[in-house]
Nucleic acid binder design. Structure first.
Lengths: 200, 200
DNA sequence: GCCTAAAACGAACGTTCGTGCTTTTTTATA
DNA sequence: TATAAAAAAGCACGAACGTTCGTTTTAGGC
């Protein structure tokens, strides 16, 4: 029991890494154990044993996607000051990620897939998104927004809309639309009118 | 060949009506012929014969969903004057429909499902959404917006965001956020500053 | 009331899915 | 190096899927 890394843990991590990518494209239902195993060049049953059921694999995949989201979007933003800078950073990191990685947003894909399928998987997806929205709302409140819930909804809608439109149309111009709209939204923040006009 | 209505046509219509509802919830892939047949109390093979393949059923379902969208969202708005009133009407009708019918937006569900599955089904979904966006953009241009593409994107993002958030959280307050944000967006239209402050 | 074509049916197919059981291989420690 | 546990593989299953086929029912025109 002494080794720091039991081999299984790294295998499991690489399975989940691929699973997040696959599910971002094909959905968590379209994510099939056989295909996942084939892509990783291992047997169905060997992969299956790591999770015990498809639902456990799905739940682990959601958690892995949430961890990736935290690492790529939330964590970098946490290095900036509370409020407006952090809000801008989160939106920017989210949009950057959409362009850098080709798979699209995991949570946009799976939340649409599971919004009418009650169960633990749906709950996990909903909880992750809810946490992000609450964080946006919290930062908006810190920034002095009068209606932080509405503000968070608007920011959420714009970045998710960019994902949706880019995925379907392939036009990179949607990112310009989104960034411009986000700039205008952030310009509504108290004391940001000048900063926006000057620095951007 | 004389009868005006071949019986098959009405059966086909009722199949597609149910198919749109089912696909809005379960997706076009989750839409299974067996389940659809069971709900309509007919045989798999009898239903199947109407379309010849699952893909043809999916394409017909997309077309039926587009027709429903035109009837419920676009057509009522066409009775209002060009520009701002029509834009407001389309957004309102879209949001109303989300609350009235329980299934959620067909195109929100299926576009997320198919954005990474090339083929005729994806193309049909993309074309329908593209047509609506172009119509929004056209009305924005008529209303005198300086950046109609960005405007259409913002309106699209807000209504789709409302669908997404309502489906996942069940909170009707998201409609308030969406309506308020849309009001603010429409208030940017040239010559609408007073109308908004007074009439709302 | 026949006759034809459309419409619906029932059973079966090949495939793919998730899952369970058993065996073999690999890994880590004493 | 021996050994026990962990990891992976092999094989098979039952269910559900889309699809095909031959048959039966329904409906409309002479």
């Amino acid at each position: 029991m002494s080794p720091v890394t039991q081999k299984g843990a790294s295998t499991r991590a690489s399975i989940l890494d691929r699973a997040v990518d696959l599910a971002s494209a094909e959905g968590l239902e379209g994510l099939t154990i056989g295909r996942l195993a084939a892509e990783l060049q291992m047997s169905k049953s060997g992969l299956f044993a790591h999770f015990g059921s498809k639902q456990e694999l799905q739940l682990a995949t959601v958690e892995a996607a949430a961890a990736r989201f935290r690492a790529r979007v939330i964590a970098p933003a946490l290095e900036l000051p509370d409020g407006a800078p952090r809000l801008r950073a989160m939106a920017e990191r989210y949009l950057d990620q959409l362009q850098d990685y080709s798979g699209g947003c995991f949570f946009a894909a799976t939340s649409a897939e599971y919004d009418d399928r009650p169960g633990p998987v749906r709950d996990a997806i909903a909880a992750s998104l809810e946490a992000w929205l609450r964080e946006l709302e919290r930062q908006a409140r810190i920034a002095g927004v009068d209606r932080p819930e509405r503000f968070a909804f608007q920011l959420y809608s714009l970045v998710m809309g960019a994902n949706s439109r880019y995925r379907l149309s392939g036009r990179a111009a949607v990112f310009d639309y989104a960034r411009e709209a986000i700039d205008r939204l952030l310009a509504e923040l108290p004391g940001q009118a000048d900063a926006d006009a000057a620095g951007l």
